[in-house]
Design a protein around this nucleic acid. Sequence first.
RNA 1: GCGCCCGUAGCUCAGCGGAGAGAGCACUGGUCUUCGGAACCAGGGGUCGGGGGUUCGAAUCCCUCCGGGCGCGCCA
Length: 557
Amino acid sequence: MVTARIEAYLRGAIDDARKAGKLPAIETANLGLEKSRLEGSDYSSTLPMRIARAVGAAPRAIAEAIVGSASDSLMLASVEVAGPGFINFVLADSWLAEQVDGILQHGPAHAVPRLGEGVRTQIEFVSINPTGPLTVGHGRIAAFGDVLARLLKAVGYDLQREYYVNDYGNQVKLLGQSIYSHYAGQLGEDVPFPLNGYKGKYVEEWAQEVAAQAGRKYLDMTEDEAVDALSIEGVARSLAMIRADLDELQIGFDNWFSENSLHQAGDVRRVIEVLHESGYVTEREGATWFSHGDSSHERENVLVKRTGETTYLASDIAYHVNKFAERKFDRVVNVMGADHHGHTARMYAAMDALDLDRSKLTFVLCQMVHVVVDGLPVKQSKRSGDFELLGQLVDEIGSDATRYFMISRAADSQMEFDVDLAKKKSDENPVHKIRYAHARISSILRRAEKAGIDFSDGDTSLLDRPQELGLIRAMLDYPEVVSAAAKSLEPHALPHYALSLASAFNSYYHVHRVISPDLQLTKARLKLAMAVRMTVAAVLGLMGISAPDEMVREEAD
RNA sequence: GCGCCCGUAGCUCAGCGGAGAGAGCACUGGUCUUCGGAACCAGGGGUCGGGGGUUCGAAUCCCUCCGGGCGCGCCA
């Protein structure tokens, strides 16, 4: 990475300045080195301004001392003091041009730092109750989690993707009761529909199918037995629907972990006992409570209900014991909807109570998605409310566009998903522009191949136009963007980067011809184009968006 | 009432302690003897919700108020 190299260079200059007695030995862990926003400067350091007070000298004087001690470097064209005390670095044109061969030879991902080498990590995401289809809101969590997983893998984490299946408890039972009610109705028996039952059309359809396939089988057993059996049936059908929706978005999991299996193994009861022995459990009002928090903010949450059934919280504590104590993950990232945020404090408290290291657990909460159709929230729209369903949305606008929009916003921000914009204006969609840039470069390379041009011996030092150097700079940002996004768990940097890279190529394309009568220049530019295509493909790959070699224009309908 | 998130261009959103505040879309005006015009270039448009504070420096940190969303012990 370029920043790492400049950082090393800057540290060398600082050391030399110290040895020469021009700078006192003060703490300089943070160099304040970042991409410069100023035109004509690539990177800048704010260090002189940060340490001015401690050093007791003017920022500019400190900057001068450091720059004065800096050695020559082939990578840098200039190192200068600017403004109130910045140190600005400008990359050398010749060095930039050389980087193209490096990208072609090793690939754009080569310079991505291995931040997570050897760290056993799990990312859990989606984990929606298996009681129905995924909504658009779930789709955001799914796309976000999937791209985050790709990012973590890209920086070297030993990663497992997991879906926690809540196949236990009231919700699942309600699903079984809902199916049972419709099923009985099909066969002329009147079984009241449960309060808060699942009203979706799919429940009726499943009941019909069960009635057609199994006849009166479930009426011949007790209602409890029937509901249990139909709960299992409903979970299986729900999971099939969920998997199908996720498949359409090219999202897969390494492991589907059953909540019920924790109960079967006795893990839930066991963890309650452990909490009890450590004094975190109280009995009151016929229920068993998890007591936590400091003395001023005592909190209590139910682990075992009056009915004797355990709660979701009890399962989830056992689940996290399983993650950390049994499976020994070094790091766990849970991606979930923001409506679960109250849950995070309880889980951290449970981690503390069980002597598990809470710093190993990170929650990422995705805010809600509001679907807009015809300029109105979907619930007020005259058109079908089915746009709240993920499958419907993907059918309408496709996996690539769905993924792009879902990950292009920070998780913290609520999101408005305008279906008409994503679909009707698809010609102007950023995602199309990026994919088109890839297809266009492919087309150029095909043309070169047809013309029999072998550019493997191209001399990249001929690349000296501002747009060419700008493109190379943009490609060198790739590892920086990837590592920053992985570190901060913020995939939304990727779509923004991809768009700027594609735009940079399109601009270049309109100013300079890749294939021209000048064979040497053509070869050099073909190398550049190839490197750009590789980089665009790499970002698209991280986002799980297809990188087509050609695109057929669709007729407007 | 308490807790978490968000108020930045007409719209959707980046930027989250540094040097004239950005992108996409929309709008206005241009560019083509087209290596794929699903393109490119230029322009207009902003008291960064209001008010205090911290700092050499605040859209960014702290406090407060206003507005919106989500949540708040026997659902998961």
